[in-house]
Simulated assay, not measured.
Amino acid sequence: MPSRDRERTRRRLLDAAFVEFAAYGVAGARMERIARIAGCSAGLAYTYYGGKDELYDAVQAEVVDAAAVEFDASDLPGYAARLYELQHRHPEFARLATWRRLERRGTVSRAAEVEAIRAVQESGLVSSRFAAEQVLELVLAIASMWSNAPAVSSDHVVRRRTVEDAVRRLIEP
C-alpha cells in the first residue's frame, strides 16, 4: 500500500506542477503552491523531485511528452491540425510551450523531426523552398497561432481547417 500512496502523491505533484508552470513559468512557479495544490508539504515535494528545475523536467517528460501529438513528416498538415486540437482543448499546453521557449531556450531538441522533414523534402513530397528547420518552425507557429485567442465552437472548425490548409500550401512542391 505505501508504494501506491507514493505514486499517487508523485502524480498529484506532477499534475499540480503542470498547472503552476503553465500559469507562471519556471521562474514564477513556487514549490510551496505546487505542494499545497497537491495536498502535501513543500518538504515532500523537494524529497520527490529535488527542486523546481527537476520537477519542471519531470512535467515535461511525463505530462507534456505523454500528451504530445504524433509527428508525421509525410503528413505535416495533419500533424499541425492535431497540435492545434490539443492546444484548443488544453490551452495550458500552449502556455507551457511558450514558457519553455522563453525560459529554456535551446533545450528542446527537434533533430529527429528536422531529419524526417529533410527526408520527405528529398523524396519530393514536401517543398524544399524552405530549410527543414524553417518548415518545422513554420508548422509549429501556424498550429499555435490561435492558442491564446478565445474561440466559439463554430470558429474552432474553421480554424482547424485553416491550419491544415495553410500548412498544406506551405509545403506543397
Rank of each mutant, 00 (worst) to 15 (best):
E7V: 15
E7I: 15
R8Q: 10
R8G: 05
R10G: 03
L14H: 00
F18P: 12
F18R: 14
V19F: 08
E20A: 10
A22I: 07
A23G: 11
Y24N: 14
G25K: 01
G28K: 09
E32R: 15
I37S: 09
A38I: 13
S41C: 03
A42M: 13
L44I: 13
A45E: 01
G50T: 06
G51R: 09
K52M: 08
K52R: 14
Y56H: 13
V59Q: 12
Q60W: 09
D65C: 13
A68Q: 12
V69N: 01
A73M: 07
S74T: 15
D75E: 11
L76D: 00
P77C: 04
A81I: 10
Y84E: 06
Y84A: 14
Y84W: 07
H88S: 15
R89I: 13
H90P: 09
F93Y: 14
A94G: 08
L96K: 10
A97R: 00
W99F: 06
W99V: 03
R104W: 00
G106S: 02
T107M: 05
V108C: 10
R110S: 11
A111V: 11
E113Y: 02
E113T: 07
E113I: 08
E113D: 08
A116I: 11
I117R: 05
R118A: 09
A119W: 07
Q121N: 01
G124L: 01
G124S: 03
L125W: 00
V126S: 00
V126L: 01
F130I: 05
F130S: 05
F130C: 05
A132E: 02
A132L: 02
E133W: 00
V135E: 01
L136Y: 04
V139G: 06
I142V: 10
S144M: 05
W146T: 12
S147A: 09
S147K: 03
A149L: 09
A151R: 02
A151L: 01
V152Y: 11
V152N: 09
D155W: 07
H156V: 12
H156Y: 06
H156C: 12
V157H: 07
V158N: 06
R161E: 12
A166C: 01
A166L: 02
V167A: 10
L170I: 08
I171W: 05
E172N: 08
E172C: 04
E172I: 11
